[in-house]
């Protein structure tokens, strides 16, 4: 383990989730909450934070207990752990922020079905030390939160002319209603992904040019 941690930099593990291995833009995981609750920036952030909480706590627990979890039933145990944290998040939100909970509705329990969370347990947390598992989870969940926020703010800005409920363009702004409707979710995420691809492509070209000059 000691040699392994020398090779790995915990901050790299964290950062890769935010851009290079972004769970939404690169790995295309967690699409359901990504689209369902991003009709406003607040909802997107609330959902992102709930996911953040579940992912980081589950990763912490799974990597901490990896020695005592029998291989054959590991998936079931991961699911139980995740479901527990989701229930915790669900009740906490319901108690503290009933308005947000009402908006997110059925999609909080559905965090359980977010393949990103189970995927991280199986692919990373169950194989690494607590420190790395948590860092990885923070990175992934951070990337997810960022993507949620990006989509949520675009949809809210165009869809209502507001951000976090604050009017941006004055009274006369004509809202783009489609943005808060399901098709708007699909199309906006599609276009964001396109933008992400395009930026990646341009970056690659730029790097290639730099390399050629050198």
């Amino acid at each position: 383990m000691a040699t392994l941690s020398n090779k790995m930099n915990a901050y790299d593990e964290m950062l890769k989730g935010i851009w290079r291995d972004n769970p939404v833009f690169v790995q295309v995981l967690g699409m359901c909450p990504m689209l369902a609750v991003t009709n406003s920036a607040v909802n997107a952030i609330a959902m992102g934070l709930a996911t953040f909480f579940v992912l980081v706590s589950s990763s912490f627990l799974v990597s901490g207990m990896k020695a005592i979890i029998p291989k054959q039933v590991r998936i079931s145990i991961y699911v139980i752990i995740i479901a527990t944290f989701v229930t915790v998040a669900d009740y906490t939100l319901l108690a503290l922020f009933p308005a947000v909970h009402k908006e997110l509705g059925a999609f909080i329990p559905l965090i359980v079905a977010n393949c990103m969370i189970l995927g991280r347990q199986e692919a990373f947390a169950s194989k690494h030390s607590v420190k790395f598992a948590v860092m990885d989870a923070v990175g992934m969940a951070g990337g997810f939160l960022l993507a949620m926020f990006a989509l949520g703010s675009v949809r809210e800005i165009l869809g209502e002319g507001k951000l976090f409920g604050i009017s941006l363009f004055g009274e006369n702004f004509e809202p783009w209603v489609i943005m808060i409707l399901p098709p708007g979710g699909f199309i906006t995420l599609g276009l964001l992904l396109l933008l992400f691809n395009w930026v990646g492509e341009r970056r690659k070209q730029f790097l290639a040019q730099v390399a050629a000059v050198d």
């Binding site: 783009w176 209603v177 489609i178 409707l181």
Partner: peptide
């Protein structure tokens, strides 16, 4: 369809 979904009033 895009316009109708986006600006239903207009």
């Amino acid at each position: 369809a895009f316009l109708l979904a986006t600006f239903p009033n207009a």
